[in-house]
Simulated assay, not measured.
Amino acid sequence: MTTPDNWRKSSYSGGGEGNNCVEIATRTTHIAIRDSKTPTRATLTFPTGTFTAFLEALKSLDCTAR
């Protein structure tokens, strides 16, 4: 897989330059993730279906329960 060039940050990345978040890039078969503070370092890649299932699981969590 080649390195994607269509990185985007979350709208929740905060004020200022928004450098305290992760960035994602989507491909047909994979999702790539990197740290916005160190974009030239390691990148994680996941199959699209696996990443989608992960996001759905996060959405279903009850964040108010502690």
Rank of each mutant, 00 (worst) to 15 (best):
I24E: 04
R66V: 10
A42N: 13
D35K: 09
F51V: 01
A42G: 15
A65H: 12
T28F: 04
L44P: 09
T3R: 14
T64K: 13
A42S: 14
T64E: 10
R34I: 09
L61R: 14
K59W: 05
T3C: 05
D35L: 02
L61D: 02
N20A: 15
H30R: 12
S36K: 08
A42V: 03
C63M: 09
L58A: 03
A32F: 15
I33G: 10
T40M: 00
S60N: 12
D62R: 11
Y12E: 04
G49L: 05
A32C: 15
L55S: 05
F51L: 02
G18N: 07
G49W: 02
F51R: 02
T28S: 15
K59E: 10
P4T: 06
E23S: 07
T52E: 11
T28D: 15
G16A: 06
T40Q: 15
K9F: 04
N6D: 13
D5M: 14
F51Y: 09
R66W: 07
R8N: 10
T2E: 12
Y12V: 00
A65N: 11
P39M: 09
I24W: 02
P39D: 08
A65C: 08
C63D: 08
A25L: 03
P47D: 11
W7S: 03
L58M: 12
L61A: 13
T26M: 07
R8K: 14
T50S: 14
T29F: 00
R41Y: 10
R8G: 05
Y12I: 00
K9M: 03
T64S: 15
V22K: 04
T45K: 01
T29A: 14
D5E: 14
D35N: 13
L58R: 05
C21H: 07
T29G: 05
D35H: 08
S36Q: 07
S10R: 06
R27T: 15
A32G: 10
S36L: 05
T64W: 00
C21W: 10
Y12Q: 12
T40L: 06
D35S: 11
T64F: 00
A65F: 09
P4I: 06
I31P: 01
F46H: 12
Y12K: 08
R27F: 00
A57R: 13
P47T: 01
P47Q: 05
T3Y: 10
F54H: 06
T26F: 10
W7A: 02
K59D: 11
T3G: 00
V22Q: 05
R34D: 08
C63T: 12
R66N: 11
D5K: 13
N6S: 11
T26K: 06
A32S: 15
G15T: 12
M1I: 08
R41Q: 15
D5L: 11
L58Y: 01
R41P: 00
G18T: 03
T48W: 00
A25N: 06
K9V: 01
T3W: 05
F51S: 04
K37H: 10
D5G: 14
I33W: 03
F54Q: 04
R8D: 00
H30E: 15
T64G: 11
A53C: 00
D5A: 09
C21E: 03
G15E: 08
T43A: 02
